[in-house]
Design a protein around this nucleic acid. Sequence first.
DNA 1: AACGGGTCTAAACCAAGGTTTAAAGTTCGA
DNA 2: TCGAACTTTAAACCTTGGTTTAGACCCGTT
Lengths: 221, 221
Amino acid sequence: MDLLSQSKAAPDSNACVVVIDDDAEFRESLGRLLRVVSLQSRTFASVADFLAAQLPDGPTCLILDIRLPGQSGLDFQRDLVTANVKLPIVFMTGYGDIPMTVQAMKGGAIEFLTKPFRDQDLLDAVNVGLARDRARRQNKAASDTLRARFEVLTPRERTILFRVAEGRLNKQIAGDMGITETTVKVHRSNMMKKIKAGSLVELCRMIDRLKVAPDGAETSS
Amino acid sequence: MDLLSQSKAAPDSNACVVVIDDDAEFRESLGRLLRVVSLQSRTFASVADFLAAQLPDGPTCLILDIRLPGQSGLDFQRDLVTANVKLPIVFMTGYGDIPMTVQAMKGGAIEFLTKPFRDQDLLDAVNVGLARDRARRQNKAASDTLRARFEVLTPRERTILFRVAEGRLNKQIAGDMGITETTVKVHRSNMMKKIKAGSLVELCRMIDRLKVAPDGAETSS
DNA sequence: AACGGGTCTAAACCAAGGTTTAAAGTTCGA
DNA sequence: TCGAACTTTAAACCTTGGTTTAGACCCGTT
């Protein structure tokens, strides 16, 4: 969102492609290819090297070789899934087989390319990956601000929030909780202000978003 | 997900596994295996044979050979995706390669098994497929009844429904449409009865479901 | 021409939501 | 112990939502 942010079509200001491959020449070749299409890239020889650096803060796509010194690409993918890190991954390999491919794709890989591959195939996959990560980040950002607002609610305000989201009336909520309707109204009013919901339907959608993405998970198309 | 898993939870009365493979002996062998775990199956030698029959009406999972007389398994998958038929597919093949695998998995396949495979691997995949189809059917059934109710709404009732779902007040809707608040209230009331929404939050969720699944699509986990 | 469905409205009424003011009890940490 | 945050309530008031009754108009079909 800066002054020069994507002049017009420019898909991203700070998108970054991370290449992990143990072949130095190949890494450089990929870096050049990406530069041609105006994509930043950072290259590493191993997973360990990548982990030693820090994650880019913009939309990111991983290009991973399957066979790597130390941890393999597939192992790394499994770790990322376990750690709930949803980086899009494009796999490359010279020595792949079908079970590896299935595992990679089940793990959510964007593409599984066998070397040698056409440059365009890689670029297409990277663009899909970046688009997916962009969408995921926007989604996550929205969920995070929502969660932050939810955190400041008092216990009473939270329970009333959920009752309201169930469609219960103030009167019913008051009965459920053993307090008066006035009190419910006060809590409800404070809750709506804190969570910045302008209407009941807005609140409803906020709640549903909170419930769907309890820890940053999401369903990308 | 073990061999006897059905005996206890009995996940389905009328689940059906459809096997399409040109090897008659193999078909029969699969049929026996499925019968052991109490799964109905129907076998076909080709896609054409399957299409000539009619789709089972319960939860279904397809087991497809890649290489088939006539249309190949991958072609058939592509057609199903195009036709928006979301049957879960488990692929089997004796002569697969990585691009095929990638295409199949991108197309939403549950599994891609290379012959020979372990019985348990197939059964696991079939159970995942059936579970997914079961969930999809439930989802679709709910969306369908909702859509049916939406269809009986008059044009006025529909526009008011959407305005309400945007969080607009009766007064604002009246202003937007150039009619009185009383009229809005009447349409709104009739609309709520016809669509069987007991509260505003219920309506809100109904609308969101209609919008998310405009033609039976859905996001399975 | 008669009928039904859809649209529109007024008037009157009741229920539910929302705000404000003012006050008081609890709990917990500084 | 003091203060801050949380919780609770009454009372009064206003807005919004929802229903009913009764009537009117338009339009297409029978």
